[in-house]
Amino acid sequence: MPSLKRYTPLQIFMHAAASFPLVRLVFEAFTGGLTANPIQHIEQRTGRAALTLLILALAVTPLNTLFGWSELIKRRRALGLYAFLYACVHVIIFLNLDYGLAWSLIVQTVFEKPYILLGAAAFLLLIPLAVTSFDVWKARLGKRWKYLHMLLYFIVPIATLHYAWGKKGDFFHFSGEVGRPWAYAIVFIMLMILRIPAVRRFFASLRTRLRLPFSINKPQAS
């Protein structure tokens, strides 16, 4: 049995935080907190959890650039797999509970509701990333693994648009129930800006030159 000491504080925190949405849903299920429309409630919660975790996975590299927080890189796979887990629950609930596996209705819905089509695309693109997230595949794919996992740069905006278009309002005119989707979009855009090589180099050199007090440059236990 591995003892708890083998886990770093960040690791423990991350597992606790990533399972929180699931724990909360189970708690709500027992206390009547799933609202009058539990299926939609669970769909929305798991969808949001998945998107949040994907964005956190995208935040790993920029946070490392800004703060030299390299332990985060080791936690990225778990973030992605938690996101995939929530996305799976999200999709399973949609197919099984929301649409009762009525395939003709599901097909009709996918093509009549562009936001569902976007969600389906995001989910399908996520599958190869989850499958190849393990070391065997990383070794087998070599450099191509990195390119494959850059798919996330497309999956996150697709999923964000899926979220935004499921809401009442006009996302691109900042009108209606678009506040939360825009919050996700803005964080995503910032994380992408921090990936631009010039920006990245600027912040990396700034950190080393200034020896910023909040720099988290812990020696890595191996």
Partner: peptide
């Protein structure tokens, strides 16, 4: 707020989809 999605009449109509939602079924 969203002129091409919400008209003045807004009659319940399973045959006319909201641009982003089918209205054929409901829970």
């Amino acid at each position: 707020a969203s002129p091409n999605e919400y008209g003045f009449y807004a009659n319940v109509n399973p045959n006319v989809s909201h641009p982003r939602w089918s209205q054929a079924s409901e829970r």
